[in-house]
Design a protein around this nucleic acid. Structure first.
Lengths: 340, 340
DNA sequence: TTTCAACACGAAAACGTTTTCGGCGATATA
DNA sequence: TATATCGCCGAAAACGTTTTCGTGTTGAAA
């Protein structure tokens, strides 16, 4: 077991100074061709690699960015990570992944723990709890320390920073309009509780579409799911008691579950019930029938977020202006077989 | 924008030495009650937090572990990360995620890049390319440098280290037996090419089950998928031309696709065709019908892997024995509606 | 009054780099 | 011969910690 070799050890072996070794390896002209060759050969032989931690300390840059997400099991977040990782890697950055588990405390702990030089910047999507508490002091603090933060998807207006979002309201509007255009007038909405920013926006879009088509918004057709672990009965109830011919679900789990329940209740999809989901997940793709859905393009969001963060990191040296941007990623309606 | 405060700055402000500040903050009895209070108050006021990079350099421990996986979009790997992250966090470790994208080169680059002090240890699952090339020099090198590695799922016998696996052969055997027990004699297998270790093992289990039930292994019923992006025609061909009443698929994508194609060909699932998948993914759960599947318990794998790695990291100080373990995580057959 | 311990604190090394500056010998120039 | 120049190299600082060891002051004991 040969431990890692350091500059000091090479210097000692070759009976030169540490500076000489360092310069030789960086091919400085200050050092004679002869010495350079000797040092480089020796370094190669012993497989010398500079210690990253030491470099980080010296440069005050870790070349690591952290992404904080509520959960990784969620396919959308996985795709975002994938996008972030690619761009980061291309630019020589590593990616630290932290999960908040939708908990405010974990989010705070993670941020405080890493804001001490461990990383260069954050990419994050707020936890549900944070959104409901509306307490963002931990984020403000980090930003005030001069560490750039890019928020995506679940963002808040209370914080000034770069943001990547999709136009949730507009996307929901389009999805609802799509259903209406098919002649479906009784569209139910299955959504989350309001404090989840995207849930609220999508609900707004749904309502707006109805109104613009002179349809009345029937609140009893809007199902707000609170308990993510036990919502089937509510949907079943909706399908049984209400006269609907279409459902717009704000995520793919709700959409897939609706299909399953429709099947159970002998309601034919899409003949009797059209269903549109949200998110570009694998569930929608591999489900039978395939689910028509609003694609969020998580990969692109991740890529864009990483680009913005890295751009800010690299330009920061020149102490540039603090002009924050909010980028909107376009969504796309992927038509499959769950709609007429 | 107040930048991070350091010991040196506090020392200067309070007109004491750096040592005094450090000791005060660690509540050393060497320092007078008075001074300690003063320093601590000041530190709190300026929200002092020790710089992690400096600590890492000093302690030669980064409290960071890296997990290298082929892709994150795969639900199974996402669950593993989740398990790793939890245990890591509990023990004060952070998790760096690297994606090899099934590429040998990316795997090598990532490992070499991080083996220079950036992290304390690796948890990894081999990329397909690495498995087919059988070139593991990068891993051997890392291990020889004294950095612990824990492999999971896609492992190799050519490397000595801790491993977490499931008994793929046994699980496949059970799944096949389950089908046979239902009276289904014509069981097809949809698998991957052999160099993916788990694909091979699952194929072996399938064959063994057939043989033990005095059924002949019909190689034409074994479909080896090479091109992950265009395999539907092959499955369709299989369903159309072969007389089969059950399919065992080695992952959930294959299983879900089979259902979709059966639906297209008007083959009723499970009445005319029973399907069993592999992996405990969300596709199986939310698909209609729900897919009976072999659950791999990725979370538990991740947890176990993290535990083994951290255990080795913390015990290493005592230069313990080098006894490597291979832990087998039990699988479970989750019965849903895609089988009789 | 001298001696010694206890107390409170500071200097410095160490972790592994990079980089600035200065020095020294040799050669070229005046 | 004296001076300037150049080539080659080393010392040291810096990044932010922790920790060992040393040192000066104080009080009490002899």
């Amino acid at each position: 077991m040969k431990r890692k070799v350091t500059l000091k050890q090479i210097a000692k072996e070759l009976d030169v100074s540490i500076s000489t070794v360092s310069k030789s390896l960086r091919n400085s002209l200050e050092i004679s061709e002869d010495t350079r060759q000797k040092v480089q050969a020796f370094a190669k032989l012993y497989n010398y690699k500079p210690n990253n931690i030491a470099l980080s300390l010296k440069n005050k840059k870790t070349k690591t960015i952290c992404i904080i997400i509520p959960e990784i099991i969620h396919h959308f977040f996985a795709t975002v990570i994938s996008g972030v990782e690619h761009i980061a890697n291309e630019n020589g950055y590593n990616v630290l992944v932290c999960l908040s588990d939708e908990s405010f405390d974990k989010e705070v702990i993670n941020m405080e723990m890493l804001a001490n030089g461990s990383i260069d910047g954050f990419i994050m999507s707020l936890s549900k709890e944070t959104q409901s508490k509306k307490d963002f002091h931990h984020i403000v603090e980090v930003i005030n320390q001069g560490m750039p933060v890019v928020m995506f998807d679940r963002v808040t207006n209370d914080i000034l920073c770069d943001k990547i979002i999709i136009d949730d309201e507009h996307a929901a509007y389009n999805a609802t309009q799509y259903l209406i255009d098919k002649g479906l007038k009784n569209v139910a909405l299955i959504t989350t509780i309001d404090y989840v920013s995207v849930g609220k926006l999508r609900t707004d879009g749904y309502k707006k579409a109805l109104k613009n088509n002179d349809l009345i918004v029937d609140e009893s057709l809007i199902l707000k799911i609170e308990d993510i672990d036990n919502f089937e009965p509510q949907i079943e109830e909706l399908l049984k008691t209400k006269k609907i011919n279409a459902v717009f679900a704000v995520n793919e789990i709700f959409a897939a579950t609706t299909i399953k329940l429709a099947h159970k209740l002998n309601i034919k999809v899409p003949e009797q019930l059209s269903i549109i989901g949200f998110t570009d997940g694998i569930i929608s793709k591999y489900s039978t029938p395939g689910i028509t859905t609003v694609s969020q393009n998580g990969v692109k969001m991740g890529e864009k977020a990483a680009k913005m963060l890295i751009e800010r990191l690299e330009s920061e040296e020149n102490e540039e202006e603090e002009h924050y941007r909010t980028e909107v990623i376009e969504t796309e309606l992927v038509e499959r077989d769950s709609t007429l």
